[in-house]
């Protein structure tokens, strides 16, 4: 978003400006324009006057801009079912399988070094036994999800208990699906469809958290 004197900001952009919803760069850009353009500065003043009448209302309905800038950057780089990337991840998983097989073969050829172990109990969801593909997807999403989780936790007191209950019920559904997809991937690490489905479930979770973090206070 760049504004010179000929290209005036839209009403939406001005709204976002007075609502403090622009990125720091966007805000700076608009401030520069407002300093040079009396017409837009007047619009801004009138809009702020309008909002003064609503001072009792919560001014902020979204997480702070610094959180969003990071979130948006991560989301922007990912398509819902990033097939191209999934192929790369699947290729990486295949490579891992090949390396694992080679190591196993080496160990089998040296029977004196092979130790018999009891099979481990069912792996928790903390990544044990996950293939490279799933770990990469996990890492990508978990960071964003953690930020949104924190943002939602901060706004929790502002939301109605029934709304929180609705959000948490849906999050449980998604988490269960994510858990199943991860376990399936541990058994079939090179399955690119599984990676895509896991990514799709993560997308649903991300959307849900984003929406929850944007809800109006007291709703």
């Amino acid at each position: 978003m760049t504004h010179d004197n000929q290209s005036h900001p839209s009403f939406d952009e001005l709204n976002d400006f007075v609502d403090d919803r622009l990125t720091p760069a966007g805000r700076l850009d608009l401030e520069t324009h407002l300093a040079l353009c009396p017409r837009c500065a007047g619009d801004r003043d009138r809009l702020e006057l309008l909002l003064d009448q609503s001072r009792s209302l919560a001014a902020e309905v979204e997480p702070p801009a610094e959180i969003w800038s990071g979130v948006h950057q991560r989301i922007a780089g990912r398509s819902p079912l990033g097939r191209r990337r999934s192929w790369l991840l699947a290729a990486a998983a295949l490579l891992l399988v090949a390396v694992s097989s080679a190591v196993t073969a080496l160990l089998v050829r040296r029977p004196q070094t092979v130790a018999v172990r009891q099979s481990a109990p069912a792996a928790p969801l903390a990544g044990v036994g996950l293939p490279v593909a799933a770990r990469a997807v996990d890492a990508d999403y978990q960071a964003v999800i953690r930020e949104l989780d924190e943002s939602l936790a901060q706004r929790r007191a502002q939301l109605a208990p029934e709304t929180i209950a609705k959000v948490e019920a849906s999050l449980r559904v998604v988490d269960e699906a994510i858990g199943e997809a991860r376990h399936a991937l541990a058994a079939d690490p090179a399955n690119r469809d599984l990676v895509d489905l896991l990514a799709a479930s993560y997308e649903r979770k991300l959307e849900l958290l984003r929406r929850a973090s944007e809800l109006l206070p007291a709703t």
Binding site: F11, N15, R46, L47, L50, S54, S56, L57, A218
Partner: peptide, 23 residues
């Protein structure tokens, strides 16, 4: 309830936008 808001009002001419709030 508190109903607030109104129209963005440039000097002369039609308004490019409006904003309303109910609480």
């Amino acid at each position: 309830a508190h109903f607030a808001g109104g129209f963005l009002a440039p000097a002369g001419g039609p308004s490019p936008g409006a904003k309303f709030f109910v609480e």
